[in-house]
Design a protein around this nucleic acid. Sequence first.
DNA 1: CTGAAAGCGCTAACAA
DNA 2: TTGTTAGCGCTTTCAG
Lengths: 336, 336
Amino acid sequence: MKVTIYDVAKRAGVSTATVSKVINNRGKISAKTKAKVLKVMEELNFEPSMFAAALTVKRSYTIGLLLPNLANPFFAEIARKIEDRAHERGYNIFMCNTDNNEEKEAKYVSLLRRHSVDGIIVASAFSNLTVLDQLFNDNIPVAVVSQDIPALSLNTVTVNDFKGGYQATNYLLSLNHTNIAVIAEDLRSSSDRIKGFEVAHEDAGVPFNKEFIRHGFSSVEGAMEETRKLLKSDQHPTAIFACNDLLAMGVMQVAQEYNIQIPQELSIIGFDNTVLALSSVPALTTMAQPFDEMGKQVVDLLVQEIQGEITTKQTYMLVPELIIRNTTAKPSIVNV
Amino acid sequence: MKVTIYDVAKRAGVSTATVSKVINNRGKISAKTKAKVLKVMEELNFEPSMFAAALTVKRSYTIGLLLPNLANPFFAEIARKIEDRAHERGYNIFMCNTDNNEEKEAKYVSLLRRHSVDGIIVASAFSNLTVLDQLFNDNIPVAVVSQDIPALSLNTVTVNDFKGGYQATNYLLSLNHTNIAVIAEDLRSSSDRIKGFEVAHEDAGVPFNKEFIRHGFSSVEGAMEETRKLLKSDQHPTAIFACNDLLAMGVMQVAQEYNIQIPQELSIIGFDNTVLALSSVPALTTMAQPFDEMGKQVVDLLVQEIQGEITTKQTYMLVPELIIRNTTAKPSIVNV
DNA sequence: CTGAAAGCGCTAACAA
DNA sequence: TTGTTAGCGCTTTCAG
């Protein structure tokens, strides 16, 4: 049988109210009583049930985390940071892999509500706005990370994708590449990165080839297929901006397939700076997402809202950072 | 205000007991009453609090998952599968990153107990046996995945590391490599893999160089350092067996650093088959861990124990599978 | 500084 | 088939 506050109270010769006070370090208790209670708690290896407490206190100290798929290093990285920070703040994380599937999203949210989570962090696409609306009506705080849901006003932490795209492109341009292609997923973040790509060209006065902007691929295979087409074309690009590291890996595989030297014959830049970028051969130049900061900010925002410390919704927009490694170089004459 | 069972009962004109019954689909209720209650629940967007229920029913339908670090693709992969299966079985997962740090382990376990988890899955090294002992005394089911804790008898799911090491080595031997090195972490699983390496050599009647067995590295950097030493030695190896994919990436980076062609001049085989193996260039030959099966089995084992369906502890030992990709080939004459 | 007692939202006998 | 009632383990007034 689990040991309860009654067991502790009886053994310590005090009331449960007193025990409760020492557990929560609240109210006035004599040092002596406190010491005695603490000792008994120790002896009994007592852990107070947050369930029972939550019932009156209406706070579970749990947060739900909705993301598409942990097996994707990008989300794994964020999840890690979020969990860290949440734990620091005394909250536990309920992990939910939605696969960006509306049905799963709804199911998880329902489950999370039954579990009385104090708030929810959304890192998945979250197509299901109805569900979010319900949460809103039910007064369950929601914070969003790594995307913006323009239809709703929520606490949000994003990274400046436009700027990321701009800087990545700009770096390539500064290396004298004038023939740059983009491979992207079909996400809002991607289109912002692409916009950055375009504006960087305009600002530099370098024209870009619209044909070289390819989007709609989320898998390595998709990226590979597209890269093949790109590299087969007459005036093929000397550099490719892959909108995430995974896609960049696809590009690199095709380069090897075609016996194209990286970075001598083809420069590649990724986005995210996941473990893939660091471990790839050659190591990938990429725009780093500030995972640590992102995780920290979302949970802080959410926790603040939970604890009623902020009432207005806020948006943090962090900036990605260029990490130069070994997949980028000046275009060689050979290749032009 | 959160809507409660009382609100539903009142609005539906029935007692809370009746509502409880329809929630849990238990007892006898007329179709009519049931329909009415269901309708009201829908209208009120009611989600029963598992907290309150757990208080009497003594089951929270939550499971704690302890692992070192989600940012490590191996654990991310397992976590994903575990979460999937748990969810299928109606359980939610509490995520805990321990960094293999005893203090964190203890803190998390304490937190999990306060949250009244029904059971705990341990995927981290778990140095802290005292804590596990407490769980045992408290009758909290624990299942272990991807390792065995010989000191304790617990439900366990592992993969046959000896066999994995044997098969990896054997494949290399079958390719006619006779000069094979191993790079490993300092884990029990690694020593089993190394044992497999040795026995495979003995069985094939090929002597192996003890100097070529290097262990104690857990980072890419460590692997790189060691690979440099290995490749600098006079009679350097023609193949390297890296005891996990991440280490293999380190080996590949050094190979490129030294301008050594893979697989022509050096074969590499990894272990795990994480996303790294698939996306590396060239794609990595590796021993695949059966992540899906592992995840499924641990949660099934744990859930069975929770629900009292099994009383004896069980051990599943799954087998890894050789996935041949592009980092392995026959040794070239040049290199001998 | 300490304790008695009510109540949080739900379930589980037991009556009706 | 449905309702009454007594907890589950903890917190919180409010007295003492």
